[in-house]
Design a protein around this nucleic acid. Structure first.
Lengths: 143, 143
DNA sequence: TTCGTTGTAACTTTTTCTGTTACGATGAAG
DNA sequence: CTTCATCGTAACAGAAAAAGTTACAACGAA
């Protein structure tokens, strides 16, 4: 599976902002966040832009600009983050449509789709069980 | 998510072999299977080679060669197939290690790993609930 | 010996994520 | 009303994996 790190980085960024704000700061810059994640600030801005569209983050422009949480860490689940940044499903059907004249080729798509929907539902239930507050608690416990 | 169709194609191939054998044939060739999946025979051979390593399929060489199931369709779950062809996890941690001097950068890896293990477990449970016999039944029902 | 099929290497194409550079837009501060 | 730090975003390069393709040696039943 060509796994990606988008959910990890998004959770990292939001958790970082949450902790930073909890320590009395107004806004966090993409450069600060990128320094913690160890990546390029543009990568962070792109991800946070998607999270803003989903109503999880907010940004200010101009001098003293930066990023804030739109809601408390406890009100953001990993499912919220996942849905904000991963539009596609985990499993895909055939790249090219299978032979419709073959019984299996004809029926396999709907059959697998039904299974994949159950899998996505289970995955969603699991991601919904953890909030970013839980993540931050684990992070601070490890320190 | 960079979804891939490997599980779909593998399930398709095994189900096709199962149905073909059930209709009285000894072996199925990669060319026949590829015609149903609508792909290149080498793609099928590569996938089936991995399934053979996992003990799900068998092959004969020489003239009249081809592929057979190593066990009945009812004894193969989608989890078996998934494990045979997908070595990696669904979610990845950071590509480059985050800043270890930052509290979040230091603790986020273990925290997310714990979550991802729960997610993979849920995904496995769900895939284990469906056998290829179930898939074939759905396929034939749709015909 | 023939011949159809597997086994596998090698290469190309496609796709997605990631990293990087560049620069206009914004808006608070002075 | 100028300055300047930061966002917003386009554009492109690089990396990695899946998928497609070609080629050919190895095999083994007939």
């Amino acid at each position: 599976m060509s796994a990606n790190s988008r959910l990890t980085v998004a959770a990292h960024a939001l958790t970082w902002i949450g902790l930073y704000q909890r320590r009395g700061h107004e806004v966090a810059t993409s450069e600060q966040i990128a320094a913690s994640v160890n990546t390029n600030p543009v990568v962070i801005r792109r991800l946070l832009a998607e999270l803003r569209k989903a109503g999880l983050a907010e940004s200010q422009r101009g001098a003293g600009a930066g990023w804030m949480l739109a809601r408390d860490l406890a009100a953001i689940t990993l499912l919220d983050v996942y849905r904000a940044i991963e539009p596609g499903p985990v499993f895909a059907l055939h790249r090219a449509a299978p032979n419709p004249e073959c019984v299996v080729g004809h029926g396999i798509g709907p059959a697998m789709t039904a299974v994949y929907e159950q899998v996505e539902a289970a995955l969603s239930r699991e991601l919904a069980r953890t909030t970013l507050e839980d993540v931050l608690r684990d992070v601070l416990k490890a320190a």
